[in-house]
Amino acid sequence: MHLKTSTLSNFDGSAELQSGNSKVIVSINGPIEPKPKQELPNVCSLEINLHPSQGLSTTRENLLVDKIRSILSSLIIKYKYPRQLISINIQIIRSELDSIIINNFENSPKDLKIFNFELSTILNCCYFALIDANIALYESFISIHSCIVNKQIKLNPSLEDLIECGSNHIIVLSIKDNQPNKIIFIDSKGKFSEKELLDVIDYNFNSAVGIFSEFKRLIDIKIDNDFVWKN
């Protein structure tokens, strides 16, 4: 996993994350003055734009944006910024999906399996960008993508794994004191039994500690860079 923060100097916060073969850049401006129609009297509003690596955004991107919005609105302390706007721009720079062109994702079960392919990287990148923009969060969070291939659970599946697998799951966990605390969001595609899903959740809870320690290492580097003038 490679992370660069504050890459875009004109934004309040930005992060560029490479995880596997996907590369995503997220920039955040906020809290800023909203348009009159966006203004809410006691909380801040969220504006999220998602740009795919190729072409224009389609219904797939719209659905992903809705998912991202539901996750981020439960984690950002919106009451701290009444009548303000937080604008989040997500650009997918590189994705394995580039190699195949899919016109309509909802058509076949095969397409559905790879529907969420970049979502996990996007969410993790959003976390770093929110930290960089100094937006108040209730809790830290991590997103884990896993799939079940031949009854084995595999983390960070590649595109081939997803096409072959029985089911794949994106789980967003909130982290408190280095331990996974709550399940914020689950999105599963494919055929699976209840036991398989519980197994996946168990597995992800166990691997969350290791993943978050990597996140902490990356944030520590960022903080050290931010306060370089103190040394």
């Binding site: 701290k80 930290i131 937006i135 108040a136």
Partner: peptide, 17 residues
Amino acid sequence: AYKNPITQEIIPVSAGL
């Protein structure tokens, strides 16, 4: 630092020193 009005818990809300 922020006090959650629902849980009355005091939490840090950003990453830093």
